[in-house]
């Protein structure tokens, strides 16, 4: 079971640092994958960041799509069903929680609600750090603890981390 983290920094972090933190490697959202709200040309894997169901339905069928990136926004049930049909992920963003203390409790409640909805429709889920710099990087143990805040279950938290590794191991 390998753990992979997605970061969002202008430069790539060292892979030795990834090994120290318990990940097999880092994948950088600025060059190795794309975070976008609309489809564009290119063969890079895509993480969808929009709440518009029509845009999501158009992009989700692509084999390059990883899933949708959530910052606690409400996601419609039909979107979750579509994600499950296509085997894509709901990706939770740990940077959303670590960036500031303000409203952290309500952010966690929103993520828990999304987790419950996605869990009921049996959609696969993942969690990433999306760290913009080295101060916001997290070890795998820390990401696991943050996942437990959302899932309240050890097994589900580990599954969230390993789902990202399974999806990205070909990149």
């Amino acid at each position: 079971m390998q753990y992979i983290d997605i970061t969002n920094s202008p430069e790539r972090f060292e892979q030795k640092l990834a090994k120290r933190l318990g990940f097999s490697r880092f994948v950088n959202a600025n060059d190795q994958i794309i975070i976008a709200d609309r489809a564009g040309p290119g063969a890079k894997p895509l993480l969808i960041q929009t709440t518009n169901p029509n845009l999501i339905f158009a992009m989700i069928k692509s084999p390059k799509a990883i899933g949708i990136l959530s910052n606690g926004e409400e996601v419609e049930q039909r979107v979750l069903n579509k994600l499950k049909e296509n085997g894509k992920l709901v990706v939770f963003n740990a940077y959303y929680l670590t960036v500031g203390q303000r409203d952290r409790v309500s952010k966690i409640h929103r993520l828990k609600k999304l987790f419950r909805m996605a869990g009921k429709s049996k959609t696969r889920m993942g969690i990433v750090s999306l760290a913009p710099n080295q101060d916001y990087l997290l070890s795998s143990a820390q990401l696991l603890e943050i996942a437990k805040l959302i899932t309240a279950d050890d097994h589900q938290a580990k599954l969230m981390l390993s789902n990202i590794g399974e999806t990205l191991h070909d990149i």
């Binding site: 203390q101 916001y136 143990a141 820390q142 990401l143 603890e145 943050i146």
Partner: peptide, 12 residues
């Protein structure tokens, strides 16, 4: 130790 790990995730 888990609470310590979680607290350290939030200290920036």
């Amino acid at each position: 130790e888990r609470q310590l790990i979680l607290a350290l995730s939030f200290i920036k």
